[in-house]
Amino acid sequence: MSGLHVDSIRKRFGDKQILNDIFISCKPGQIIALLGRNGSGKSTLLKIIFGSLSADNKFIKVDDRKIDSLYQKRKLIRYLAQDNFLPNHVKIKNIIQCFCDKKNAALVMENNLIVPSLQKKVNQLSGGEKRILEILLVVHSDAKYVLLDEPFNGSSPLHVEIIKSLIKEHSKDKGFIITDHDYENVLDISSTVILMDNGNTRVIKEFSELIEFGYLPARSERIQPPNL
């Protein structure tokens, strides 16, 4: 069975059960929007799938291969962390060559947004520029599945559109799981919407369900995104 399958994920912080038997499945070509209120466990779930956070219980399988440790996932999963994560002391050109294979590195280095900064170090970029670079690196990686934690955070409207088209373009041969509070833009590109609520996941079929389950305020009905 091809695809990324995440099953029986349980995580407790102190007395609070953050994740309770979570199941998510993602195939190349799919863009899954993972929505939920603050503290609902979205980032925790992505970190567990990626392998940087341990779970009380987990079962992760990629294309019939059970995954236990982080470095087994090298060519399978990439993760865009919520905050900037690039090493400040390294030149951007070197970072790109280290992060991507030759073909993809050339594509990133040819990108109009990156060309002027190639010889700079990461600490010379603004927060938004760092974010764009991180997204370009993660999306252009050789991994089949990409986890994006708040990709639109700190990005200007123009950059948001660039990020959206980049994700759409690469979703032809990659599977994406995206979480961001900018729900309109996330819904705009997603093929499946999952709401995290009280440690459980719910597949959302109608936009009104986001209001019904308390993710959006009632007045949000006016801005019905095209995909729902």
Binding site: S52, L70, Y71, R74, Y79, F85, N88, I95, F99
Partner: peptide
Amino acid sequence: KNPNEYYFYYNIGLSKFI
């Protein structure tokens, strides 16, 4: 100081142990 930088290295297949 910079625990987030670990994510860069995790993404290129380097664990904390390595």
